[in-house]
Every structure is written in structure tokens, then in C-alpha cells.
Write a protein that binds this DNA or RNA. Structure first.
Lengths: 251, 251
DNA sequence: AGCGCTTCTTGACGCAAGTCAAAAAGCGTT
DNA sequence: AACGCTTTTTGACTTGCGTCAAGAAGCGCT
């Protein structure tokens, strides 16, 4: 298990979360989209009490591994993580990317052990939320229970979107859909919807979308040639959002 | 909305559930795998109180449609249902098949409207579980809350399995995996793991697995020729379970 | 600045699964 | 049992993406 720098909690301010001089859910700029959403005053304090913040991860480091005992779910505070499974012939399937304000680890509840592994794509900070505490608190705070049900439901709906994508779409459509997903998740956090840095490699993208690296690369080149995108290494600029939406053709 | 024969509840016995002379969760033979799992005596009564059983569906009939307001989740009592989404160019993506004892509709919680449609593949009976009641009851019954979290988590984990399947596997592997999934879900209900009738069409199977009908048909033929399966229309017999597992090659 | 390693791009070629087409089998209806 | 409709099967052909290969670019390390 990962415990490297204990007691960052409540002492050192986390630089990547500039407003959290004294980290607390109530002054985290992600509160509006993260777990505290729909809670107020005293309730947020109660939630904050069960949250542990001692988990800064280096790039490549694991938050948990498939098969690990399930104890907590995690909220991303900064950075990006990917979740993936390994098939027994050694191939890897990326099942999701997680950005700040998003929750991961919920797939471990069913069997009380993690169904996937999660690793940091860059330096990442997470809030650990012990699940038994969350359960207890949920029983007392109807809004929290409701919101957590909603978060799990969203994960299901997102996975189903991906299923449709993998099942029905061409390489172009898949890449377009991923870019649009990242774009809208950025917008949710008040970041640019048209200009961003991909924290994941082409390999990860291909893996997530069920494509090879080569195909992903070719799609990027093609979209660049059509001036839909400006690709410069990991920096992406969406030049023609409408065209991209048309390509992705999502409901 | 579907309300055709009101008040079957507590009066007419449902023939497909022979032990339910007086339908009640405590004497339903599916109790061990369905929602009541992990509840006892009085708790089961409380759950039973919120459940509505007035929903027998004809083949082809919808339980709910994408975009419908979300009010309840449903437990399958008999028959089979499929969940699917429609892309805006009119194509359909089957996202899951649901057998007796399984819960569907949980993808509607997030947005308070159903993210997919559900229709019966044969005559099917379901128990309707109003979600607000379930939420309230969950706050009082820790075991119920826990179990419902687990059910949602299982749905996530299952979807991720499907994602891996769609992303990495050949047509043979996909079909093998589906057959094994059906097989083990049958076993869970004390039915034969090697002999069963497919309630879904080849089109639905292909749709679910991201394949065309033709490919599905060819795979069945091929597996029959290899004497892994005995296929007679919708009746399937698994002749060589090990070979099938090897083909599916799931973790 | 130079080295080694990893990631990314581009091209040539092959194959698994899609498409098109047509026949056969199943099934409900009268 | 004859009809029409849907589902399933099988064959021939096409194609998008995977595979293989080689070079280019990026990046951390000394």
C-alpha cells in the first residue's frame, strides 16, 4: 500500500490546490463538482472529518492494484489517473481516465477488492474516503447518500457510452469522442475547452479506445490535416469544435 | 408508462414464480441473489412493503425508455430483458441482458432520467422498487444500503468487463464470453450451466458484442463444427466447457 | 551537449470482420 | 397447409484497422 509522506494532512498546504491553505472540503475549489456537492455547512464539516489527504502520488505510481483489498474510494484533487485491468495474457485495458473532482475506486465495492488498478499519469493528489465511514455518514445525510448513488450511476452511464463507442464507432469517431469528453470535463473545471495538454500517452489513448498506437497517431495527423485540430506533441488545440462534434456524433 | 394489469399484487399468484402463492420477498426463490440478500426477517418485510409487483410485460414491450423520468429500479422476477441505447443516427447498442434476480435501471439515477431503454425479450415479470423509498429504507438498514452499493458496483465492474471484451477480443472470444456469462448466471439460479435457450436473437447478440448478425452466425457454426457447442436454433448445449473457457480466456 | 530510452509518426502489406446478396428455415395467422 | 414475415445461415467480395518495420522526435540523465 502507498504511504510515503504521512502527515501532509492539515499541515503542509498542497501547492496544486492553491486555495487550500488549510485543506478542507469547504474551501476546495472542486467542492461544486466533487462529493461535497449538495451538502451544506455542517454537513461538509462532517464529510471533511472522514477524508484523509495523505496521498500525493508520483507519476507512474499506483493508488491501488487489482485485487487489493477495498477500503476507500478516492477523489482526484490534482493531476490525472488512469484505471486499467490486465487480462491474463498480459494485455492491458484502460477503463477510464480520472480528472480533478472525479471519484474512482467504486468498482471495488462489489467484491470488497479492487476490480482494476489505478496509477497516476502525472503527479497527482487524491483525497482518500474510507468507505465504511462514507457508508455510515450516508445513512445520516440523505443528500450525501443521494449524491453518491448518482456518482455511481454516472460511472455506469459513462461506461455504457464507452461500450457503444467501442462497439459501433470508427477510429475517427472514437478519438473525436474522447477529445470532446476531455474538453467538456475541462470546461466543468473552468479550464479551456479548446486547448489542453493530454496527460496520457498515445498508447493509453489507443488502449482506452480499443485502437493501436499507430491508428491513434494517424487519426491525429488526419485531423490536423483537415484543420480540425492543432496537435503539437501532447498539446492539443481544437480548431473546429463543430466538426469534431459532427465526427463524434454523440447523442 | 406501462400499467396494464393493476393489482396482481397480493391476489393472483404469478405462475412463473411457483412458490409465490402470496408473493413476498421472503418466499421468493430468488431472495438469495436479489435485493433481499443479506437482510433478515423484519427487514425483508420492510423491503417488501415498498416493492410493487404490478408489472407483467409482454414480449417486446418496454419497461422504460431512454429519457423517461427516473422513478424506480427494477428486479427481474421471470423472463429476460435487454437494455439498449439508440445513437442519433438510429443504430442501437445493447448494453446488457437481465435475468431473474438481477436489477436494472440504475443508470437512471445520475440524471434522474433513464439513460437507456429496457424491453422484454419474452414474457417477463419485474418487481418495481421506487427509488426514493429505497433510499429512505437504505438509510435505516445498513445491510440494504451496503448491498445496493454492491449491486451498482457490480454493474460497473461488469460493464468494464464488457469494455475489455469489445476492445481486445476477436469474434470467437466475444461469443464464448457471452455464453459463459449466461451459463454462470443460470448456475446461480440452480439452472443448467450447459443447456439453455437463448432468449435473445442473433441480432441482439451481435449488437451487444459489437458484431454483425452474420459474424455471430458464423461463429456459432464454427463452434458447432468444432463440437464445442450443439446449436439448434435458440437451444444451446455447451459440449466442451473447457474449450469454451479457453476461447473466452477471461481472467 | 551527447547518450540511451521511450514515445510518436509514417509507410507497406495482410487479415478478420463488415457488406452485399440470396437462399433456407422458423413461426404466427388465417 | 399455405401464406407472409422475420430470423438465420452461407458464400463471395471489400475494407478499415492491425501488424511489421524503420525512422524521427522528445526527454531525462550524466
Amino acid at each position: 500500500m502507498n504511504t510515503q509522506l504521512v502527515d501532509l494532512d492539515k499541515k503542509a498546504p498542497i501547492s496544486s490546490c492553491p486555495n487550500d491553505y488549510h485543506p478542507h472540503c469547504s474551501n476546495c475549489r472542486l467542492a461544486g463538482i466533487c462529493l461535497p456537492f449538495a451538502l451544506e455547512g455542517k454537513e461538509i464539516d462532517e464529510l471533511d472529518n472522514i477524508i484523509q489527504r495523505s496521498k500525493p502520488l508520483q507519476k507512474g505510481q499506483h493508488l491501488y492494484r487489482e485485487g487489493d483489498g477495498f477500503e476507500s474510494v478516492y477523489a482526484v484533487r490534482s493531476g490525472t489517473l488512469k484505471a486499467y485491468q490486465t487480462t491474463d495474457d498480459g494485455r492491458e485495458q484502460v477503463t477510464g481516465f480520472y480528472f480533478p473532482g472525479e471519484i474512482l475506486g467504486m468498482d471495488g465495492i462489489a467484491k470488497n477488492s479492487h476490480a482494476s488498478s489505478a496509477r497516476a499519469l502525472d503527479t497527482a493528489a487524491v483525497c482518500e474516503i474510507p468507505f465504511t465511514s462514507l457508508e455510515k455518514l450516508s445513512a445520516d445525510l440523505p443528500h450525501l447518500q443521494r449524491h453518491f448513488f448518482q456518482l455511481m450511476s454516472r460511472e455506469i452511464a459513462d461506461d455504457q457510452q464507452l461500450i457503444t463507442l467501442l462497439s459501433k464507432s470508427s477510429a475517427d469517431e472514437r478519438v473525436a469522442a474522447l477529445l470532446l469528453s476531455i474538453s467538456s470535463r475541462n470546461a466543468r473545471r473552468q479550464l479551456s475547452a479548446t486547448q489542453f495538454r493530454l496527460s496520457m500517452s498515445r498508447v493509453d489513448i489507443g488502449n482506452y479506445l480499443g485502437l493501436t498506437v499507430e491508428t491513434v497517431s494517424r487519426v491525429f495527423s488526419r485531423m490536423q490535416k483537415m484543420s480540425v485540430l492543432q496537435v503539437e506533441n501532447k498539446e492539443i488545440e481544437i480548431l473546429d469544435l463543430e466538426a469534431l462534434q459532427k465526427m463524434a456524433d454523440l447523442r
